[in-house]
Design a protein around this nucleic acid. Structure first.
Lengths: 109, 109
DNA sequence: TTATTACTATCACAATGCAATACAAATGAT
DNA sequence: ATCATTTGTATTGCATTGTGATAGTAATAA
């Protein structure tokens, strides 16, 4: 099972589609979670996800317009999508009757 | 932030209410997740949750009928409920637009 | 050739997850 | 009483995941 931060990163990369790379993923995570994402957390997790085959990465072309190192693009593999779905479903399944998970039209109240 | 297994344990204990103790929590986890829950994972996590103030535990009375050590009862503290709610909300928020999380009638709102 | 900008990489340690193994207490039979 | 049985809990040691601090790399402009 992947960890929580790994899940967050996969989700952010998925949301960004073709624009997913280190910096944009970091911004996406910070905006989606409201919490800070450190550089170390970011790249070590990308590395770990890649070595597990859950994402692939490659160096982006020279699309930069004003200086700067080239981007390391990130994309989920089918296994990455599966792993994320599994994590999500596991949380949903476990939370089914939790008081903090009740939504409209759901359960006894 | 609590970890995924800590969340699962909090949820199981919450679901069991007054019947929450080591063995019953373990069974609840295994039935809710479909995965095995080892003894070590169980008690070390209970210890950690207690030291963080997310659960309280105490030794149950002599309600056993056929032998056996007394139970270590577990109950969520208000902080435990908050931590679980936070974890759940964080996952929900991040997953809002994920392809694997789409449900009916789910807009940005 | 140097300064600036945009980005990625590494390290070291903390927090969390987990299997294997050992230990404790209550009961009932002898 | 003491011993086997039953029901549960506790400890140890290591693997995995999370994260801040720090360093490094490459492109561009002046």
């Amino acid at each position: 099972m992947i960890g929580e931060f790994e899940y967050v990163l996969l989700t952010a990369a998925s949301a960004l589609g073709d624009d997913a790379y280190g910096v944009s993923i970091r911004e996406q995570i910070e905006s989606a979670t409201g919490r800070r994402c450190s550089i170390g957390a970011l790249y070590t997790t990308i590395d770990r996800l890649e070595s597990k085959g859950l994402v692939t990465t490659w160096l982006g072309g020279a699309t930069t317009e004003r200086g700067g190192r080239s981007k390391r693009m990130v994309q989920l593999t089918p296994q990455g999508v599966s792993a994320a779905r599994e994590f999500y479903n596991a949380i949903m399944r476990v939370s089914r009757d939790a008081s903090w998970a009740v939504e409209r039209g759901k359960g006894i109240v």
